[in-house]
Amino acid sequence: MSADETEPPVTAFILVKTTPEWLALTVQERVHVFTTQVLPVIEAKTTGVRSRFYDTEFYSARVTDVWVWEADDHRAYQLLIDALRETPFWDRYFEVIDLLVGTENGYARTYGLAPVATITT
């Protein structure tokens, strides 16, 4: 990698399934657990990570939620996973089904091409 290039962001799709323990909590209890037991650990141990949440239980029995994380680089992603594993999110409130990790348009960077994408109006 040349000096003028930066490492591309890492995107992780964490596929999870809710546990009976999580579902037994009220909505208010879930928010409290997340904001007091999960977020503080992530914020204390990571930088350069952002998340979005997608509900999939309407369409899938195996995966109830997809948590999409973007990390500035591989180190930030690794710190994120280490932090999550120290919280009740990981295998207590959610069963982690799969981790799908990649970089957007990696093929384009590898072959020096412009990314190919669809645009609709």
Rank of each mutant, 00 (worst) to 15 (best):
E57Y: 15
V16K: 02
Q28H: 12
F34L: 05
Y59K: 07
T47V: 10
V16A: 07
G102M: 11
K45E: 13
F89D: 03
E29R: 07
E29Q: 15
W90R: 07
D65P: 04
Y93R: 03
G48I: 12
A44F: 09
V63Q: 04
T36M: 06
V31K: 06
H74F: 14
V10R: 05
W69N: 00
W22R: 04
R92E: 10
R52D: 00
V63I: 14
V101Y: 05
W67H: 10
L99N: 06
Y54Q: 12
A44V: 02
V38Q: 01
I97N: 09
F58S: 11
W22E: 07
S60M: 11
E104S: 09
L84C: 00
I81P: 00
V49W: 00
E70K: 05
Y77E: 09
V41R: 08
G102Q: 08
E70A: 02
I81Q: 00
Q28C: 07
Y93K: 02
E43P: 02
T11W: 10
K45I: 07
P40V: 14
E21R: 09
V10C: 08
D55Q: 15
F34H: 11
D98E: 11
T19H: 06
W90F: 04
G102P: 06
V16C: 09
T103D: 10
A71I: 05
L25Q: 07
G102C: 09
W69R: 03
A61Q: 14
T87V: 03
R50P: 03
T47L: 01
I97S: 04
T47W: 03
V49N: 01
V10L: 09
Q28V: 07
T56Y: 04
W67I: 13
V49F: 04
T36F: 13
T36H: 01
V68P: 03
Y77G: 04
V33C: 11
L80N: 02
R92D: 04
D73M: 03
L15M: 03
L84Q: 05
Q78E: 14
H32R: 12
A83T: 12
T46V: 08
S60Q: 08
L23P: 02
E95G: 03
A76N: 13
Q37M: 14
E70S: 09
E21K: 03
V63S: 01
W22S: 01
T26K: 06
R30A: 03
R50N: 10
L100V: 15
V49Q: 09
F34E: 12
R92T: 11
Y54R: 06
V66R: 01
T35D: 08
E95C: 06
T19E: 00
E21D: 08
K17R: 10
V10E: 01
L15V: 01
F89Y: 13
G48Q: 12
I97V: 15
T103I: 11
D73S: 11
E57H: 14
T18P: 02
T46D: 02
A76G: 14
E104R: 10
F53W: 12
D55S: 15
V10F: 08
V31S: 13
L39M: 06
L79S: 15
F89G: 01
A83Y: 03
L25G: 00
L99C: 03
Q28L: 11
T47R: 05
R85F: 04
T47G: 04
T64K: 01
F94M: 06
V41A: 00
E29W: 14
T46Y: 10
I81H: 05
T36R: 07
E57F: 14
